[in-house]
Design a protein around this nucleic acid. Structure first.
Lengths: 216, 216
DNA sequence: TAAGCAATATACTCACGAGTAGATAAAGGC
DNA sequence: GCCTTTATCTACTCGTGAGTATATTGCTTA
């Protein structure tokens, strides 16, 4: 796709078709990303095993070896997708501890992000990908990353219990419960639906934090 | 497996190796069930697409055509498995409405059963099976069945709101939240773990119903 | 200007797995 | 005592999909 040549300090008036080294590296990155975006959509729609790289390639108007040129093999494609789902979660988890407010407030803010991330393409893929789809080594790394997130979640819950903003409870099960409720949209959420991911995230977090019984 | 011949009114002292028509029908049913049990375990462990019927057959010490003799094809195996997961849920949903107690009490009892069912082999398979794995026609029926359960769940929530035992809230999202939290164990629960499905179910239901903030 | 590399295509190989054909053996009925 | 049905096997077919070998074109660099 020409026409998006970047501006260089001494760029000529008409955009040059000759790409600099940086432009070419960026071009390559863009193509890689395009492959991943196309792949993750298909994985989410049809499942990883039911999606062939031929299909992914065809949806981009290229041939299969092109995908192999950018990403070594099919598992690599999946790994990059789940990593792109995990990464924002990891960042949110890292940031959550250092924010102001009570434990409950920090937890709530984190949960809203957690839910939102789980509704975007890469997040959905991450949630829906089970260890079965990965090689043993990759599965180990994947589980470890998810465990980090879980640990951060537990830390926030503990902090809330410690400062009294959260009722004492089994931390592990509480974390599982929250994770389950906020992962579930990865299965049913339709991005084209009437409610935005943000609205849904806010609603779900309200429900899980306030419980069912009326406050007396 | 001889030796489990049933008692007939005029049964001879030594169990007869000659099976009656009923016994043979039951034998056949037993074998069908054995195939399904073996299959569902493998589906849960490795995923549907990653499980071959050759593997399932081998785990039972028989050959693949034997499976085809009892169940027409691979999709049929999956359909029977998810049906066996759905059926107890449907029964629980049907029973829940007519029980005594407040809306919240009835809902809680239903949720405990819901969670427990989702942790057994067929329940896990049901939760984890996505529409992608099924033919369009089967997927329609599957979705409809799950929708029935969801509707029953919503009905219980509405009843609780109506009688004041549940705080007013968005019924649809509340149902999604509860379902998500209680479906999640289908992914992580290890039947060999220290806690029984019953204990886990009770804990999760306590957490979702009471929320996080301390009751004042 | 030749060599090398990047990007892409066509046209394969190869394994695996769903499903089938056909044989066989036992049991049951007529 | 034959014929049919049930249960099971071995040994296939056939499609699909991951991954590769190799050719081509064009840019970059010595």
């Amino acid at each position: 796709m020409p026409g998006n040549a970047p501006i260089r300090p001494d760029a000529p008036a008409t955009p040059s078709p000759f790409r600099t080294r940086e432009e070419k590296i960026r071009d390559r990155e863009e193509k890689r990303e395009a492959v991943l975006r196309a792949a993750v959509r298909m994985f989410n729609a049809r499942g990883f095993h039911a999606t062939s790289l031929d299909d992914v390639a065809a949806s981009l108007g290229v041939s299969k070896p092109t995908i192999y040129h950018y990403l070594g093999n099919k598992e690599q494609v999946l790994i990059e997708c789940v990593t792109r789902g995990l990464e924002p979660l990891r960042r949110a988890a890292e940031a959550a501890g250092g924010e102001p407010g009570s434990g409950l407030e920090r937890l709530r803010r984190f949960l809203v992000q957690y839910a939102r991330i789980n509704m975007d393409d890469f997040g959905r893929c991450m949630v829906r990908t089970g260890d079965e789809s990965l090689s043993p080594e990759a599965a180990v790394r994947f589980r470890a990353s998810k465990r980090d997130i879980d640990l951060a979640l537990r830390g926030l819950i503990e902090a809330g219990i410690a400062d009294g903003s959260i009722a004492p409870a089994d931390v592990k099960f509480t974390a599982f419960t929250l994770a389950g409720a906020l992962n579930w949209p990865a299965r049913w959420h339709d991005p084209a639906g009437p409610k935005s991911a943000e609205e849904i995230a806010a609603s779900l977090v309200d429900i899980v934090t306030s419980g069912l019984a009326p406050r007396s």
